[in-house]
Amino acid sequence: MIINLQKGEKISLTKENSNLTKLLVGLGWDTNEYSGGFAFDLDASAFLLDQNGNASGIEDFIFYNNLEGGNGSVIHTGDNLTGEGEGDDEVIKIDLQKIPERIKKIAITVTIYEAVKRVQNFGQVANAYVRVINELTNEEFIHYDLGEDFSVETAVVVCEIYRHNDEWKFGAVGSGFSGGLQALCANYGLQAG
């Protein structure tokens, strides 16, 4: 059974399913008709955060130039440069059992590559979603459509997967940022170079 979430809703991943250990977080999107002369290149990323909401270094930032982190617990499967076609545009694999104890939260984000140069923003993006799949059974069990609430934002925190007591939870965030990847990095205690 797929649970459809709305912005701000949270749900336990492991309370009812203690055998859940490996997740696939699939992200997808379409772009509206746009005549700016540049293709859209959206990029999914994961920030591995401590109890204060900060990444301790670049090793806690999983993206197209650093595909693995957290002792192999979080793996980005690769950059889709066009977002064309059906299904997930980018996928992040998470092994809940391998996540280091110091990591309390994983923020899953999407940014627009060179958004300022290309004059692009999330107001030009449609049908954005995140879904969570049990990797071992290939069953989708959480789906969150981001809606079309964005205008000038160039980065979005899509969702968070976080520890709460002895369980893992999923939070549908859908929070937009202006300033793209640099703004996100600064928000999580990193300096983008």
Rank of each mutant, 00 (worst) to 15 (best):
D41H: 07
S178I: 14
E101Q: 12
L27Y: 07
D145Y: 12
A186C: 01
I112N: 02
R163A: 10
I58F: 09
I62F: 00
N187K: 15
G174L: 13
F122V: 04
E148G: 01
P100Q: 05
L146E: 02
K93C: 08
G147R: 09
S178A: 13
A183W: 09
E16D: 15
S151D: 14
N66H: 15
M1A: 12
N187P: 07
P100D: 08
E90A: 01
L42R: 03
A192H: 11
A46G: 05
Y162C: 05
N19H: 12
D95M: 02
V74Y: 04
T111P: 07
F38Y: 12
K105A: 06
A44S: 13
G37C: 07
D30V: 13
I92P: 00
E160S: 14
N19L: 11
G147I: 06
K105T: 10
H76S: 10
V130D: 08
D43F: 01
G70E: 03
D79R: 06
N121C: 15
L81D: 11
K15Q: 12
T21S: 06
L20A: 13
F40Y: 12
N32T: 14
Y162S: 10
C185R: 03
N17C: 10
G36A: 13
N4D: 13
G70M: 06
L49Y: 04
L67A: 10
Q191S: 06
N4H: 15
V116G: 05
L146M: 13
G57M: 01
A44I: 03
V125D: 11
E139K: 07
N65L: 15
S35H: 12
E167P: 02
I62C: 01
L13K: 03
K7W: 06
T137S: 10
E140I: 10
D149G: 14
I92L: 15
W168S: 03
E90V: 03
L5C: 03
A155K: 03
I133D: 07
V116P: 08
T154E: 05
I2W: 02
V132F: 06
E114K: 15
D95K: 02
K105E: 15
K105N: 14
G179Q: 01
L96G: 08
I62S: 03
K169A: 12
L136P: 00
E33Y: 08
A186S: 15
Q191V: 12
T111Q: 01
L190N: 04
N54Q: 07
G36D: 00
L96N: 04
N121E: 12
L20D: 07
L42I: 00
N187R: 08
T137Y: 04
K117E: 12
A39I: 02
G171S: 11
S175G: 05
T111G: 09
K7L: 08
F141S: 06
E160T: 04
